[in-house]
Write a protein that binds this DNA or RNA. Structure first.
Lengths: 179, 179, 179, 179
DNA sequence: TATGAATGAGGATTCATTCAT
DNA sequence: CATGAATGAATCCTCATTCAT
């Protein structure tokens, strides 16, 4: 099951959604199509599972940062969030991009929808604690801006994470007018 | 020919890349598939043409702003660019998103590649004139962050352009540390 | 389109419903699967069309007999109906059997349902004119009994129509207690 | 083993031959597919066993009637046969229909073939004893007509057995010209 | 003897593309 | 130039059957 998900991830990563077909996934996973359908009711469910897997990873990283948040200043907290996002999305930029698109296209089930909201909610909570105005919109904007920048960097072929980290922080701090 | 492109745009907009097939495009355009193939050598070429059409529109808007730039301060110039991007992408957010994704997936021909670079180049030129450091990277970042924010706003269902305009400007100015 | 229907009929006739697959139908019709799907939206629709074709033939024969009915006695009218049923069903007994079963299994659309009823209605009308009690039930019974006998005769390998005709008439007259 | 047969019967009854697949049968029987294959060499054998089970039930009922036949008049004997057929087929009309069809399609083994003949033979014997001409054909016709009427009644949704019993007897007596 | 994961051939359906009219 | 019927490769998915445990 993990092998199948990972195979799907790799195809999405290297060839995009259009090339994601069940036979290719099964073959690359070293399984038969029959097995694929034993674990996933269909192609969409497979994609949904992959989306959830990736989202969950990011959320867990975000939560780990959140756990360290109490008592720290807003910048430190944001730095943590940004680092988590960077590590996650920059690890596999093409995969993140494909899943992002798939999420926008697919009929999203309740669980995936929840996961999606959790990220923004966690950020919004942190902003609220520090007195930021309209924390929900701000969280959404910051997540979007961060994602856009990392995506573009990945597409451009950047490999240096430190520089990108600095630039994202500049945009985030600037948006919030801190410093 | 325009009818065909517009039909493709509408399908992309409402149903996504997966639903974009030549027969559907021809039918919605009120033409026969035969005619579609008279004007476009294939599906990819059709998509590429649509990407170019949309990119060209944005570039023209950017160029119109650029023409007014000499003598104005950086903020005014950036405001123009942001307004152009907003008007363009916020007009048809789902279409923009689909084309964005298609561009990342498709084998891009030279012309489309050039168009893509022109936007960033125009912004970079303006930044360079005003002494911004590493104007190419900055232009890329600003374009990415702007696109990401507008895309997310569209996906979220925002319809008020004024508020979004302000928030994007905040991120852009913040990134550049102006004000 | 006729070729496709006829190919389906022949497969149904010689190999039964289980062997009826779209590829086989297309091949036997000398067409490509693509063409099959141009004319029929799916396998079920193809089967439904075939059912309607066969039913319509029988109904037309029934109607031809009905047209000659006015002024004739009940026996003559029934003889005509029986002859029509025999000629139709005995022509291709295995096909009739398969379609009968398909009709019982498939989700039947309104048109097919109507055709189905028309036969029984025509017989019931004739019975009613001649004062038969509960003409609707009687018509249903007679149709069922006739069909059952012809089906069994076909399955048994009978080829002589005259003897079967006589036996069916005996059952029908007996059911109605005429003679 | 009985559970498996009964599970197959229920699926046949409610969803038809097309929906009868080994996995579904095993699941509904509360067994594993492995077990199914322990008891039956394959799907066809399972179906054949089910056909034999049902046929045997009917034959036993017929034989019970036959045992009471000596010394009784033809009408009483026939009444018994009809009652047996009605009770059996009207109990589960959809199942009977499906098995009937399966029997016509499947490659029938010797045992099933024998069972099939036994019913007609028992009826033919009774007819012969009472001097009916061409008892074999008559038995076949009567069995077919009875089956056809019961099947149609079941399909139509009749639930009242008494009325149907009367009507079948009318057809049977009429066919034999008794009364 | 029971289990059920794994297999993969088979079958339904879609859709990019061609080409005769 | 326009048309749209025809093609068939590609894809999704099902299900009979096997076999290691």
């Amino acid at each position: 099951m993990d092998a199948i998900l990972e195979a799907a991830a790799r195809i999405l990563e290297t060839e995009g959604i259009a090339a994601l077909n069940t036979n290719a996934v099964a073959e690359r996973a070293g399984a038969s199509i029959g097995s694929l359908y034993q674990y996933f009711p269909g192609k969409e469910a497979l994609l949904a599972a992959l989306i959830r897997r990736e989202r969950r990873e990011l959320i867990n990283a975000i939560y780990r940062e959140q756990a360290r948040a109490p008592g720290r200043d807003l910048r430190s907290v944001l730095d943590g969030f940004i680092r988590a996002a960077l590590r996650h999305q920059f690890e596999r930029p093409a995969l993140a991009r494909s899943l992002e698109y798939a999420e926008a296209i697919l009929p999203i089930d309740a669980e995936t929808e929840t996961l999606k909201r959790e990220i923004v909610t966690a950020v919004a909570d942190a902003l609220r604690v520090h007195g930021v105005a309209d924390p929900d919109t701000a969280a959404r904007d910051l997540a979007a801006l961060t994602r856009g920048m990392i995506d573009a960097a990945g597409l451009f072929g950047e490999t240096e994470i430190a520089s990108l980290d600095q630039r994202v922080r500049r945009a985030v701090y600037g948006y919030l007018r801190i410093l």
